[in-house]
Amino acid sequence: MTEHISDLDDKFGGRMARPMAAAFLVNTIVPGLRASASDGVRYALRSAAADHCYLTGYMAMDERADGLAQAYYTKALELAGAAGDHLTYCTTLRGMSVQAVDLGHGSLAVRLADAAASAAPEAGPRMRAFLAGQQAHAAARTGDRTRALLHIKEAEAAMEKAESRAKAFGSYDPSALNYHVGQVRHELGDGAGAVESLELADRLREPVYRRTRVRYNAMLAERKLAVGRLEEACSVWDRVLDDYPHVRSGRCDDRVRIMLSALRPHLGNARAREVFERGRTSAIGVRSAGMR
């Protein structure tokens, strides 16, 4: 059920999928955790419940219900610790680091990302890349160039090892790694490099990840505009607006608001004005749909 809800989240966003996750947690998972069972079954239930709480917290963060997300993440850590589930424990710490970066708390993001890496001493190469990529992004957010570049090299080396083995669909992949490279380049002042990495991430991304496509391509457009490539930025924002009406995500809403603000100074340009009007109409439509 957690995997099914995760698929819905990828396609449609946290605001659409989280109510289903919350209902399943209350009506099915909690009674299961209270039931009598052997130790092995109880550990397995706690582990599965921790994974579900992590996903629910991630979707709450996507809605911009950040306090609620932190509550779910805390419960996920508690359950994963009780189950001895190091994978979900360190994944949750990393998720908390992602949220901290998103909210502008760089130093906290570094501490959480480092704690996540420390909690998984026997991680395989793909997991090491997953953790090191976030460490790099968090370090770059604080301006620590040396650590950011060190961790991104670690992530790239680990990903090369992981990709030489059987590819795990749905896990940290070269697209996600190039997103992190792009974020590090952006934070360290390399605007053109950030654009290059985010373009590569887009080319490598699996089509099923619609919500991710909306957010990261919106960032790509913002980066293009920042280096003076207005027409290209407008073309990317057009693609964002093709997908945007199909997702229910507070973080995607944020990116569309940023788009409208970024385009306002350029409304004398016909292409920018066209995308601006389309974005404004689309944002009104999404808000109206959310009220029904």
Rank of each mutant, 00 (worst) to 15 (best):
A113P: 04
H86Y: 13
L260N: 09
Q134G: 15
L220V: 09
G250A: 03
K224Y: 03
P19D: 11
A270G: 09
F276P: 05
T28Y: 00
G279F: 01
G104I: 11
T281W: 06
L68Q: 11
M127F: 05
A69N: 02
A69T: 01
A17F: 06
L263S: 13
D7R: 14
H86K: 14
V286R: 14
A123H: 10
M96R: 11
A71H: 08
S164M: 10
G189L: 06
A218V: 06
R287L: 14
K161P: 00
G182Q: 02
H137G: 01
M127S: 07
A116D: 04
C234I: 10
L87E: 12
L55R: 07
R126F: 02
A139V: 05
A226C: 03
S118G: 06
D253W: 02
A44T: 06
A65G: 07
D243W: 10
G189I: 04
A82R: 12
A60H: 01
S288V: 02
A48C: 03
R229N: 12
T281I: 13
A116V: 06
P31T: 11
M96G: 07
Y172D: 11
K153Y: 00
A65L: 14
L33W: 06
V256D: 00
E231L: 10
R15G: 15
L198Q: 03
R15P: 10
G279Y: 03
V30E: 13
A132N: 13
G104M: 12
F130C: 07
R251G: 00
A272Y: 05
N217K: 14
M59D: 04
T56L: 09
A270S: 12
D202C: 03
D10L: 13
H180Y: 15
T142Y: 01
M159L: 04
S261A: 15
G193Q: 10
K153D: 09
R126M: 09
R213Y: 07
S282G: 06
E163T: 13
A44M: 11
A21W: 01
A148T: 02
M16L: 13
H86T: 15
Q183V: 00
G182K: 01
Y179M: 09
R128S: 12
P19Q: 08
A113R: 04
A138F: 03
L149S: 01
M159W: 01
I258Q: 09
